[in-house]
């Protein structure tokens, strides 16, 4: 008898548990859904009953030059952060996969720890340090700090893919006369391609949503989430809902693309090659 069937002892408890799970998901998705619904609502101070359907908040956002500037900064920073973090993360993942060396624990700690440091501390440290070396208050400082936080995610995603690879594959390429560089180009990179793209999208999505560190170091080059923080500090404004819905759709597109690449056809295609 299977384990799960054995556990089905009391129907009422099972129903209660399922109800609980539904409530838990309702709690998690309530704010996301509300932000979506109220972004199309005309009221200045959103509540129920709903006002009229309106695109006013989208219009307000779309005609705000500061929002556009924020969006441009976000996109610019996000794309560069994605590329750099993925490159660094790939290198680190490959290092962990292939090499054994003294101090590897320290290396891995440096590669994986940054996301566990509270962003507010990281933000302060970055602000102080980067302004000391005259790099603070511009888009570059946001890029630098975001890569620190994002590279570990890229490393983890690509390392996972490498661990699925047959460890004999690379030595086999060497035995057949490929140099290390050729084996990298023709064996490792194609095998990791879905994970590399996945890491690219995930790190971009992380950068799109990060506001605390960016708020500390960005100066005048604010990214969109930092703008949202500004709206939140100012008067209550349903514009946040419009921006949130827009960014949500953008991030989810990236995540779903990454998901398809990591688990679905992308990975299988690469396996066949």
């Amino acid at each position: 008898m299977s384990g799960s069937a054995d556990l089905n002892r009391s129907r009422s408890v099972d129903w209660a548990l399922m109800l609980y799970v539904v409530l838990a998901y309702a709690f998690v998705f309530a704010p996301i859904a509300a932000s979506f619904v109220f972004s199309f609502n005309s009221d200045r101070f959103p509540s129920i009953p709903l006002g009229e359907f309106s695109l006013d908040w989208y219009r307000a956002v779309a005609t705000d030059p500061l929002v556009w500037e924020g969006a441009r900064n976000t996109l610019f920073v996000g794309v560069i952060v994605g590329v750099v973090s993925t490159a660094l993360g790939f290198g680190a993942a490959y290092t962990d996969y292939r090499y054994k060396f003294a101090g590897k624990q320290v290396y891995l700690a440096l590669a994986l720890l940054p996301p566990t440091i509270p962003v507010i501390i990281l933000g302060l440290a970055m602000l102080a340090y980067l302004s000391r070396i005259n790099l603070s208050g511009n888009a570059l400082s946001v890029i630098i700090s975001h890569v620190v936080v994002c590279a570990p995610f890229a490393m983890a995603i690509i390392r996972l893919r490498l661990s699925q690879m047959d460890p004999a594959l690379e030595p086999a390429a060497w035995n057949l006369g490929a140099s290390e560089w050729m084996a990298m180009r023709h064996v490792i990179v194609p095998f990791c391609a879905p994970a590399i793209l996945g890491a690219l999208f995930i790190t971009m999505a992380v950068s799109f949503d990060e506001f605390a560190v960016a708020w500390f170091v960005s100066g005048l080059n604010e990214t969109l989430p930092v703008k949202v923080l500004g709206f939140l500090q100012g008067q209550v404004s349903p514009r946040i809902n419009a921006i949130g819905t827009f960014v949500f759709i953008l991030s989810m597109t990236l995540v779903i693309l990454a998901q398809l690449l990591l688990s679905g056809r992308g990975a299988k295609l690469a396996d066949k090659e």
Binding site: P31, S35, F211, L232, V236, I240, N241, I243, G244, V247
Partner: peptide
């Protein structure tokens, strides 16, 4: 965005 959810 965590900010958007908090506003919500």
């Amino acid at each position: 965005s965590y900010l958007v959810r908090v506003y919500s």
